[in-house]
Nucleic acid binder design. Structure first.
Lengths: 140, 140
DNA sequence: GCTTGATCTAGACCTCGCTCTAGATCATAG
DNA sequence: CTATGATCTAGAGCGAGGTCTAGATCAAGC
């Protein structure tokens, strides 16, 4: 192992940034905002050491963020997990609510997609014909 | 007709807001930002009158925004249309590029969805069993 | 020891996309 | 004529989600 000897499976902030796609700035920001389940461990010199647990959690965070979950909800989720067992149904509810939002988003995007596709087709056709006037008339 | 007599098919800003889902503030903002194809007509008293053409354009804008097109791109698109015929391939390119982004977004969302679904299933199962410890262990 | 690069903290700053305010004007119903 | 409500302009403000800076410290290689 090059990076660690006794530090089994613990990563620096830079390594975690690489692995999660978040910037080191964002990682520190997320921590400050209480989006992580536990406090990140530190070396004697004060540098952060992330466990594989931390990284897994962050990867989930990334997925939830990508799908539009607000940081506030993510924070809430982290708090629930931090509090430990006993609130699983609340966690379940949070995730399920989000899944519904994701479904709605997918639907909306598919609708947009078809509108765009149609518009593209109109343009392509007009271009092929070499005529482009009257394109954005009310009936287009 | 209640609202118009000679003003065939022209709407007030409030009516357009209702029809597009944009706020009147947003409508004025869009206009200022040059997101509309033409300048909106005004009454002698200075109030905006939107044509059905304007409304159609705005509805397209709404769809493009909903699917994540930045205002800057929308502005660019409006400029192209404003310049008139001769740049259709550029418009086509703009739309097609956006469609690709939408496709990518849909894909990403579907991936997120499946991650969430799986997570929900894990929780549900644990809840059903009445055991919740060790839930967020690295292997979960 | 010295240099180089990664990391540290606190806090200022930024972009995006609106939203809201103030103070005035217009338009319509009673 | 008056009251009410919609609209006007210019510009300030806001929430989300980071990003960046300054100045210091740590750690590794030469």
């Amino acid at each position: 192992m090059t990076t660690s000897e006794a530090a089994v499976q613990s990563l620096s902030i830079g390594e975690v940034a690489e692995r999660t796609g978040l910037s080191v700035h964002a990682l520190r920001f997320y921590e400050r905002e209480g989006l992580l389940v536990g406090p990140v461990q530190r070396t004697s010199g004060g540098r952060r050491r992330y466990t594989s647990f931390d990284v897994e959690w962050l990867l989930i965070c990334v997925k939830l963020r990508e799908s539009g979950m607000p940081l506030a909800d993510l924070k809430h989720f982290a708090e629930l997990v931090r509090r430990g067992p006993g609130n699983e149904s609340e966690r379940l509810h949070l995730l399920d609510t989000h899944r519904q939002r994701v479904d709605a988003q997918i639907q909306a995007l598919e609708e947009c997609r078809s509108v765009i596709t149609w518009k593209v087709a109109v343009y392509t056709e007009h271009l092929a014909r070499g005529e482009a006037g009257g394109l954005w008339a009310p009936t287009t």
